[in-house]
Design a protein around this nucleic acid. Structure first.
Lengths: 388, 388
DNA sequence: CTGAAAGCGCTAACAC
DNA sequence: GTGTTAGCGCTTTCAG
């Protein structure tokens, strides 16, 4: 325990920086700064062990009796440096347990070497997989990654933007929340010159590159598949209208119907907010219709799975009385019974592509970059839920 | 496009800091630094827009003709500051689009205000949920969180440790990879005085606080449940032996058997490395036994699910011919057919508790902290896979 | 209540 | 090849 030398208090003590390699303390009660004198062992071993003086390049320089710049040069792959000096520095660094201070480095270089990723949620198959792909590419290129989850809340999305901005990330990968309808917070990346790349849930109002799967094509294939399997009254549970993917998947669905001469009926198209309850509500609405559909194309797999559970609970047999197709090929789709027909999308690839695009933007800043729009292919995975 | 004034090259140009508010460039080819003169518009609009000068407190100070210190004081809730001055500063900050530089702040304060979380993987239900709980508490306490995934690889785990150390995180939450057998990298947190709290996959070699669920108790309840449902030959698929949870769950299983007078048979205990293939292999091994088990308690739900899939493919009926119980209550457990009996653990709570423990350690550093060992309760969720 | 000055740890001209 | 010096943006004494 550390006591304030003035008031002998214990509770009001805070640490307050180091002075000549020694921990300095501050007493909130009496507003006093102090360090501990050598022969007064008032600090617990526990606390003493903690927060030792981190060695700096100055320590290495002093130990070797050379200048800091030389140490700095030796530590990096810098041009001219005496191999002997370099060796000595490396050894001393090792011996002193030197860990570079990224904060200082970033500050002086005006480059944080860090890229931010904003995801709307983490407890899914999709976003973590994107992160893995993106991180792979970033690491390869020498960038660190910081992940922010907006929890599908605009408020935390805005908070995320501010933290990333304050952390001086050099670029960001963004997938919006399902409730994002204003975009000023994203514009502040623009204002500060931080390049963005949108993925999956993109923003049309902003002039940034976007990486998507070909939602239209996937939806078309899914609907076509249901048609070819003899379903006649095909419904659609879509996503929220602020997301472009909802729009594109809806279009794929309606165009497939039209192409095969089916009418597009408004009562067969419902919109989920992508929450579980929302999807259950949509499912009940459709299945409770006076003239219910005999098949449903769902905007994503979690929605399709909720639909299947509702159908099961109502005693509706799948795929006999109801065909179901999802979108995304969530691992759960293969496990549920019957297994779920779905549209596979290259998830990790999306992360890789988006990150690569961002890094290219970062690097070739003298090159006129035309806001790219990358669309990745999809694949129909035929399984039990749609084939009778 | 920007051309080097010396060699007229375009490709070898890099940015290199700012000088008097103007972007400075560097040509790798001819080793020359330059800025662009006003009247030569060689920079694309695109590039010009990017990386504007970020406003600093110095800019605000200058605009208001006051000192940096005053600005700094106004920006924080600092003691004595003229309300009028404060107001002016706030307004100017707003107007100039000021964003504090966390890097500079952290550097001068020797406090990054950041906590690291190491997770072995992200594409699951468990770890993201822990992260959500932990982040909640951290945000509440004013800390930022940086997430590192080790991808179940010791090598990236070590890399994670180094990045976190270099980023000067003030503490870390750690769950080890399934292959972590050496602990020197963790000790370097100790050496640098960065407190750790282990969660879920804890390390016994290290003297840090640990947060776990009561694995023993959960496993005991699971096994007991199978016994009470009339299963006689109960096997166990366990986890890798470097994880304490494997050990504890194994003990719960054997003790339950003993308690009810069943023999513990070695051939009925197999160990998975928790990978999908590993679990499939274990499942096949057990079900292919001359005298196969009539029930299996699995170390976690993903393993149980692989077992169920293997059993199904072999035409073994669940729960009739084979009872299955998992551990963790993964959402998939409720969806698979038959639904999976499992042990529910308070996942988000684990994150919250671990983070709270860490933050307490950070705050009360003058208090002798006894390395805590927190064990959270579990609950048996009875479902279809184990009741005949 | 405010300003001047020092410095967190590091990099990178510039000189020698 | 190496040392000197000047900051990166910010906080925090100390002295008014």
């Amino acid at each position: 325990m550390i006591r304030c030398p003035k008031c002998s208090q214990v509770h009001a003590i805070n640490r307050s920086g180091m002075v000549r390699g020694k921990q300095r303390y501050y007493c909130k009660e009496c507003n006093v700064y102090f360090t501990l004198s050598e022969n007064v062992p008032v600090v617990t071993e526990e606390a003493a062990v903690r927060k030792k003086h981190m060695t700096t390049i100055a320590d290495i320089a002093q130990a070797l009796n050379i200048s800091k710049s030389t140490v700095s040069r030796a530590l990096h792959e810098h041009s001219d440096i005496n191999p002997a000096t370099k060796k000595a520095v490396m050894e001393m660094a090792q011996q002193l347990d030197y860990t570079p201070n990224l904060l200082a480095q970033s500050l002086v270089r005006s480059r944080s070497n860090t890229i931010g990723i904003i995801v709307p949620e983490l407890v899914t198959y999709f976003f973590p997989t994107v992160i893995i792909g993106a991180t792979e590419v970033a690491t390869e290129a020498g960038y660190n990654v910081v992940i922010c989850q907006s929890q599908e809340s605009l408020k935390s999305e805005i908070a995320n933007v501010n933290v990333l901005l304050a952390s001086r990330v050099e670029g960001v990968l963004v997938s919006m929340t399902r409730e994002t309808g204003t975009f000023d917070h994203f514009r502040s990346f623009e204002r500060h010159g931080v390049p963005m790349v949108f993925y999956n849930r993109v923003c049309d109002e902003l002039n940034s590159p976007k990486v998507l799967v070909n939602d239209y094509e996937g939806a078309f294939k899914a609907t076509e598949h249901l048609i070819k399997n003899g379903y006649k009254r095909i419904a659609h549970i879509g996503g929220p209208s602020n997301l472009r993917l909802s729009f594109n998947r809806l279009n794929g669905y309606t165009d497939a119907l039209k192409r095969y001469g089916f009418p597009v009926k408004d009562e067969l198209i419902v919109k989920s907010d992508l929450s579980r309850q929302g999807s259950v509500r949509c499912a009940k609405r459709l299945l409770g219709l006076p003239e219910p559909p005999d098949a449903v194309f769902c905007v994503n797999d979690p929605t399709a799975i909720q639909l299947m559970l509702v159908a099961k609970s109502m005693g509706i047999s799948i795929p006999g009385a109801l065909g179901v197709v999802g979108f995304s090929n969530d691992p759960i789709a293969a496990v549920i019974e019957p297994s779920l027909t779905t549209i596979e999308q290259p998830v990790a690839e999306m992360g890789r592509v988006a990150m690569q695009l961002l890094i290219d933007t970062l690097k070739d800043e003298h090159v006129e970059s035309n806001p790219a729009f990358i669309s990745l292919g999809t694949k129909l995975i035929k399984r039990g839920s749609s084939q009778r």
